[in-house]
Design a binder for these strands. Sequence first.
DNA 1: TATTGTTATACTCTATAACTATA
DNA 2: TATAGTTATAGAGTATAACAATA
Lengths: 152, 152
Amino acid sequence: MNKKKEKDPGEEPYLKVLRPLVETYFAFLRKEEPHIKTLGLTPAQFDVIATLGDTEGMSTCQLSDETLVTKGTLTGVLDRLEKMGLIERVYTEKDRRQIIIRLTKEGVKCFERVFPDQIYFLKPYFENALGKAEMETLRGLLLKLKESFEKG
Amino acid sequence: MNKKKEKDPGEEPYLKVLRPLVETYFAFLRKEEPHIKTLGLTPAQFDVIATLGDTEGMSTCQLSDETLVTKGTLTGVLDRLEKMGLIERVYTEKDRRQIIIRLTKEGVKCFERVFPDQIYFLKPYFENALGKAEMETLRGLLLKLKESFEKG
DNA sequence: TATTGTTATACTCTATAACTATA
DNA sequence: TATAGTTATAGAGTATAACAATA
């Protein structure tokens, strides 16, 4: 989605950041995607598992907000994950319209397998590119930018 | 795809970069996506248009490499874009297996409308977050990281 | 034989809107 | 009325493998 060309950024200095941001993410994705696929998950499914990981679960609405998956679509995605035994729907008493989605034991295992795996896999790309101080700087700048998008 | 939780990055300093990278890109995407939709393009279609923009066109194979869209899928995406009149298939003499995909006049107009539009739309998020020197730094670090992914 | 692009299949995601059951 | 989640529909993207034409 939207890898801009390296054309002359002209008078807009911020384009000098936008394109590298998008292109770096895409370069990352090219490594990441085949790796996710070996887990037998689609990107949307992976998104849900990653969002639920390290939480006590959340409602469908909340899950829809936190991922980029709309409510109607989510039902289908959850159906498949439920069939795979990775998530469960928990019915609550206090509001009987609401359903809490959370990882099953199997789902937690999946989540916990993914990340150490990924850590090992991705590490060299970062460490070959950047020193420790640079990582710290990069982190700080990215977080500032992220915040700006989120509050704007 | 893959928004990691803000859990303790532990002993792996590079995770302090990976998560902000992914999350910043997602924050950007949340702004970008609705904006693309107003153009009547899907993300995959937008990807193709953006990749073809400012080029003389390229073969289907090449286009498949530059986007994240596989060869078989691309046929369908191109069919739809051709029907919309945004791209055309040009048959070449030198290798009659190959077809060059390029933007039509209409496609170029679309491409040229998108970007100034986007520039105007996205600008404040960057400028409110970062000074000019910070942008320069961020750009440099991102490009180093990108290169590492691409050559690794 | 290898490569380019298309076709075929089967599944997943997507948006949207209407629907139900609760509140 | 409003909200939470499901269902229904139609379209689009996805991977994969087999295929025809060309090299």
